[in-house]
């Protein structure tokens, strides 16, 4: 099946020049982007199979001797294309802070404790129906220096490839009802409220496991539509 990648869809992405997020000021290109035709260089992309994912990569609570602190959660969902078709066997990489809001990264200076039982990195391949499932702990909010008293809402970073260079995306998943949303210039860099909502996971009782973990659903839609045009109904 051959995919096309309508450019209109790109409007969902935040503008790189979003000065409320201070790091963009010196890093967002100032000159206009040049429209790139979709050649083989764009419509192909790397393919990752089971060799890229080790057993246990999708369970971030079992990567160490003991169990991490925090609220155990299941994050699952489907990866779809713009026609709603599943994107099967595609790689998802995630990373996140621990329950205290601290990243393992050497340059994270937030004085919250590291958790010796939590790294916060995971990988999974979607199944034939585009489904994925991670087990982790809910990340904590954390302060950053963008402006006075700035805090990031709790989030999990997601990196996806999809079928081509054009479907590649890195994003962040948030949790429903976070009171920090309205103060966060990264979340608010997406100016359309309905588009922003696509990054907010949904609490789902059916995803929870009784006596064990809360559950959130997060569906991801990647660029790509069927190249076969849909017959439009004719007016008579």
């Amino acid at each position: 099946m051959s995919l096309i990648y309508p450019r209109e869809s790109l409007a969902a992405h935040p503008a790189n020049a979003s000065p409320a997020y201070g790091s963009t000021v010196k890093r967002a290109p100032s000159k206009p982007l040049i429209l790139l035709p979709h050649t083989l260089s764009e419509t192909t992309g790397p393919v990752f199979g089971h060799a890229a994912v080790a057993a246990g990569d999708c369970d971030l609570t079992r990567q160490h001797v003991g169990e991490p602190l925090g609220e155990r959660i299941i994050v699952s969902g489907r990866v779809l294309d713009e026609d709603g078709r599943p994107v099967p066997h595609t790689l998802i990489e995630i990373w996140q802070a621990n329950a205290g809001g601290r990243y393992v990264h050497v340059r994270d200076q937030h004085p919250a404790p590291l958790d010796p039982n939590f790294t916060g990195a995971g990988r999974a391949l979607t199944d034939a129906e585009g489904r994925y499932r991670f087990v982790t702990v809910k990340p904590g909010a954390y302060p950053w220096r963008n402006h006075h008293n700035a805090w990031r809402p709790a989030h999990i970073h997601f990196s996806l490839f999809g079928p081509s260079f054009l479907s590649r995306v890195i994003t962040q998943m948030y949790f429903p009802g976070d009171p920090l949303f309205k103060y966060d210039p990264i979340f608010q860099s997406i100016t359309d409220a309905q588009v922003r909502e696509r990054l907010v996971s949904r609490f789902d009782l059916a995803t929870t496991e009784p006596e064990w973990a809360l559950g959130y659903q997060f569906d991801i839609v990647l660029r790509g539509r069927n190249a076969t045009p849909v017959e439009e109904p004719h007016e008579h």
Partner: peptide, 15 residues
């Protein structure tokens, strides 16, 4: 369907 919008990779992706 509307595509999932991008967000920054942030500074702490390396691990």
């Amino acid at each position: 369907l509307g595509i999932t919008p991008s967000q920054t990779i942030g500074p702490f992706f390396a691990y």
